[in-house]
Design a protein around this nucleic acid. Structure first.
Ligand SMILES: [Mn+2]
Ligand SMILES: [Mn+2]
Ligand SMILES: [Zn+2]
Ligand SMILES: [Zn+2]
Lengths: 140, 140
DNA sequence: GACACAGTTTAGAATCATTCTAAACTGAGT
DNA sequence: ACTCAGTTTAGAATGATTCTAAACTGTGTC
């Protein structure tokens, strides 16, 4: 599923972010940056990349996800105490979280209006606002 | 700092929640339910209770915090992937989170207005909305 | 009061996502 | 080809949390 055109696009993506392109990084980028937004854990990415042609170690998966995050290609979403999600949607937005299956769904930023937020404590400034709407199966 | 009056109040609190009162549970309740709202980790509670007269094992701290949570005396706040916070404020409200020192500050529910929230995915209903305002030290 | 028995507590082992370590590998530039 | 920083990796280490299985406690029964 990775034609030369795709490959060049991914390499350009990494270079634009100041990241040297390697076989492993391109393989991970191919999984992450396929044009659709995703919420993935390190384990999921590791499992996905293992199915493909290029094996990548779990340590490299973690290293690379963090590097992409620092470079602004991914965002970390903290939503559950037992796992970290990486989000390929780096724009401002919020989340539904379904605890039953551990899945995240995006909520557009303009679907949530926050007003009357009090000022932050002294010496601190607002970095980002995360809205998490936790879901539960309907009873009926 | 625990006079008989306090002790009776704590026992009544536990009994009202359907929890049998034991030496350990009362010692933990004394730390948690002193009339002020707190955000604490299991380790913090364990350290605090160890300073007092009644040693309590870490396993019991975890057991009891979860039991109090199930009984509605505490709320779990997931905000950092490396630790779980227990909140003695069980009413609807939101949080500032200061990553630098790991501290939480309450934001009253009526300080945040959420409008135009999209409907949840089919078969799911909204359980709760958590707003986390992440803080950073001011640069200047 | 001894007896029974469920409920509770506990030390220490186990778990598991994540991070660390230290050695091998790779690749761009000379 | 040679070098050197940057990268990858297996496996060990970490650390919060959970589990296990044995000891303990409290309350009710005879
Ligand atoms: Mn995971
Ligand atoms: Mn902790
Ligand atoms: Zn998202
Ligand atoms: Zn709170």
């Amino acid at each position: 599923m990775r034609n030369p055109r795709q490959n060049d696009r991914l390499k350009a993506l990494l270079q634009a972010a100041g990241i040297r392109s390697t076989r492993q990084r391109v393989a991970l980028a191919a999984i992450l940056f396929d044009g659709t937004h995703k919420h993935v854990t390190a384990e999921q990415v590791h499992a996905a990349v293992r199915k493909g042609k290029s094996p990548v170690s779990l340590a490299t998966v973690y290293n690379t996800l963090h590097q992409y995050t620092t470079a602004g290609l991914l965002h970390e979403v903290v939503i559950s105490s037992s796992r970290v999600y990486f989000d390929t949607n780096t724009g401002e937005h919020h989340h539904f979280f379904d605890d039953a299956d551990g899945k995240l769904y995006d909520i557009p930023a303009d679907s949530v209006r926050i007003s009357r937020l009090p000022p932050p404590p002294p010496g601190r400034k607002l970095e980002r606002v995360d809205v998490i709407v936790r879901l539960v199966a309907t009873k009926s």
